[in-house]
Amino acid sequence: MADLPPLREVIARHGLSASKALGQNFLLDAQLLDRITAVPGDLHDRAVLEIGPGPGGLTRALLKAGARVTAIEMDRRCLPALAELEIAFPGRLRVIEGDAMKLDHDAIMGEPYAAVANLPYNVGTALFTGWLSAEEWPPRWTSLTLMFQQEVAQRIVAQPGTDAYGRLAVLTQWRSTARLAMKVHRSAFTPSPKVMSAIVHLEPAAMPDGVSPRVLERVTEAAFGQRRKMLRQSLKGIPGALGTLEALAIDPQRRAETLSVAEFVAVARELS
């Protein structure tokens, strides 16, 4: 690492700038990046998937921590900077040019892996829900350590009865244990975004038997799509839902934000 030029110098030399269209915001603070890579624990010789490495700030920190990194980048402008890291860390970094939304991450990795990423803001939630919505469980990933806008991070770890509690919290907490690991001030990024960010860390949990992700998604979409209405109104469009509430002794006059994750899962199990 001592032989690598400063990241700012690399960015200037390659004429890089963060693309708003790609949801990019570059992290340059080496100490902060080291703190992020410490969140998932010891990464020595672990396979790590990184999405959207940009000029390679987080990639450097992951390699410094001893990880074997596969980085998916769709911005061709960043590939020469990442190629320099491939040379500096022979056999430890593999860069794949492509759209992470369209690639099979499990097939690319070929082994259990941790995902660590400063996700592009414009696709972060979609990538995240994709990891959590797979029919097969447990997943190939062993942990997810991901940067989100702070508002999204709070929705992921939200508890029932709070304004942030919704579909994302139910999906996340059904299949994983999640915690907000650290907040990141917007001044840490180049350019500085208008919002604060946060790191969320997840580890997969055992999947309850007999529950379809698609059914759970349909139930939560209906319930939280009209979250100020009683369940008897918001769920009436789902065949069997009102009878399921009665069978489970869930008061149909309750609103979606009052139901626990376990109650949503119980409803989805009956409908599945």
Rank of each mutant, 00 (worst) to 15 (best):
A88K: 10
V95F: 01
H105P: 08
E136R: 15
D75C: 10
D104F: 11
M101P: 02
D106A: 10
G110C: 07
Y121H: 01
S133M: 10
E86Y: 08
A115E: 05
L82W: 05
L103K: 02
R140D: 13
H105V: 07
I87Q: 15
N122Y: 13
T125N: 00
A67M: 07
R77Q: 15
N118T: 05
W131D: 01
V123I: 15
R94N: 09
N118K: 08
A67I: 07
E84M: 10
F89K: 09
I87M: 09
E135A: 15
E84S: 10
E86P: 04
G130P: 00
L79A: 00
Y113V: 01
H105I: 10
R94T: 14
I108W: 02
F89T: 10
P120G: 08
M74T: 06
G66V: 12
D106T: 07
A107S: 14
R140S: 12
T129G: 01
P138L: 13
M109D: 05
L85A: 05
A117S: 13
G91R: 00
M101V: 14
G130V: 03
D106F: 13
A83M: 03
P90G: 04
T125Y: 03
L132E: 07
I96H: 07
L103T: 03
P139S: 06
N122D: 08
P138T: 12
E73M: 05
L85F: 07
G98Q: 10
R76E: 14
G98L: 12
P80Y: 15
G124S: 14
A134H: 06
A88N: 11
E97D: 13
I72N: 00
H105G: 03
R76L: 12
L127P: 04
P90C: 05
W131S: 02
P80N: 14
L93D: 01
E136C: 07
G91M: 02
R94Y: 09
G124D: 04
G91V: 09
P139A: 04
I108Q: 04
A107D: 14
R94L: 11
A115H: 11
E111C: 13
L82Y: 02
E111R: 14
H105T: 02
C78D: 02
D104W: 13
P139G: 04
D104Q: 09
P80E: 15
E135G: 09
L85M: 06
A126T: 09
L132V: 14
T70E: 06
M101N: 04
L103E: 01
D104G: 10
A71C: 10
E73I: 03
K102Q: 15
L127A: 09
G66E: 06
G91F: 02
P90Q: 13
R68M: 11
T129S: 03
A71V: 03
N118C: 04
L79G: 00
P138D: 07
N118D: 07
T70C: 11
P138M: 12
L93V: 00
I72S: 01
A107Q: 15
V69Y: 08
M74Y: 07
R68E: 10
D104H: 10
H105Q: 10
L79Y: 01
T125A: 06
V123Y: 06
R140E: 11
A83V: 04
P112C: 08
E136K: 15
A81N: 08
N122I: 08
Y121M: 05
K102P: 08
I72K: 00
I72H: 00
E97I: 02
G98E: 13
F128N: 00
M74P: 09
E86Q: 15
G110M: 08
